[in-house]
């Protein structure tokens, strides 16, 4: 029974917070502000701890001191001390005179990341896509017939014109303008399809939240839950919002009179 109550309380809190977030659709209000601060605070604290346990501890501290007292770091992988020092240099940001030292780890980070990213981008976004565009339109019945060939021709035209739209060295006038226009139309058709697809995903997320509320309402607490609980919480919510608005309105009045 006790665990049932516990589940009920946590679920009620979850439903309450969900409704608080949805109340933003009406306007900014204290419920939303409370939930926002709670979420930002918890998320930041949680991520900090996650970073400590999945990042700093296993990849730095545990490697330097493998089950040894802290002063015996030479038994572990002592060379990890150097990236550790780079990390510590970030703390110089708090000193106005030595803040320049924090630029070194940033330079290392960006330099190394870019060095690793450029060949990957060239491979995944240029070479592989280029190779896969080298297609000979196939109208055979085995490949899908006439419409397969047409579809492949559309892909080729779309890729070439879309790419040309991003060519900045010539003004988009005359023939170039027409080609670029076909390119942007192709992109917009693609964006439209993507938009519809993603909105469907969002609607399913919304349905999921509504189902959580519905499940909470239908399970409730034995003998005391049911649909009445959800009705009550909605009513309470709306009454509180109206009260807040009235108080705000009353507070504003004297100012307006002045």
């Amino acid at each position: 029974m006790e665990s049932e109550w516990r589940i009920f309380l946590w679920t009620t809190l979850s439903v309450g917070l969900t409704l608080s977030v949805f109340s933003f659709l009406y306007k900014d209000n204290p419920f939303y502000r409370f939930t926002e601060s709670l979420y930002v605070g918890i998320a930041t604290g949680y991520m900090t701890i996650i970073l400590w346990y999945t990042g700093l501890l296993p990849t730095l501290i545990d490697r330097i001191w493998i089950g040894q007292p802290w002063w015996q770091f030479w038994g572990g992988k002592w060379w990890y001390i150097f990236p550790g020092i780079l990390g510590l240099m970030m703390w110089f940001r708090f000193s106005k005179k030595k803040a320049w030292l924090s630029r070194y780890p940033i330079a290392f980070y960006i330099g190394i990341s870019m060095g690793a990213a450029i060949p990957l981008e060239m491979k995944n976004r240029v070479n592989e896509q280029l190779f896969n565009t080298f297609i000979s339109p196939d109208f055979s019945a085995m490949a899908g017939g006439f419409w397969n060939g047409i579809s492949e021709i559309i892909i080729i035209i779309g890729v070439l014109t879309g790419l040309f739209y991003f060519f900045f060295s010539v003004p988009h006038k005359g023939v170039f303008g027409t080609v670029a226009k076909v390119g942007i139309y192709t992109l917009m058709i693609g964006f439209g399809a993507s938009f519809g697809y993603t909105v469907m995903g969002r609607i399913s997320l919304f349905i999921q939240r509504v189902q959580t509320i519905r499940d909470w309402a239908s399970t409730g607490i034995e003998g005391g839950g049911g649909m009445s609980a959800i009705v009550w919480i909605f009513v309470l919510f709306i009454v509180l919002l109206v009260l807040i608005e009235m108080i705000r309105h009353m507070r504003k009045k004297p100012t307006e009179a002045v």
């Binding site: 491979k123 240029v126 070479n127 592989e128 280029l130 190779f131 565009t133 080298f134 297609i135 000979s136 339109p137 080729i156 890729v159 070439l160 790419l163 040309f164 991003f166 060519f167």
Partner: peptide
């Protein structure tokens, strides 16, 4: 570089249509 990519695509498609796979393989990773 983009202009180079556009030209490569046109040549690659011509190569694919005419069966010149050696050209398309130059770009294969």
């Amino acid at each position: 570089a983009k202009a180079g990519v556009i030209i490569s695509i046109i040549l690659g498609i011509i190569a694919a249509v005419t069966g010149q796979t050696w050209f398309t393989e130059l770009f294969h990773v």
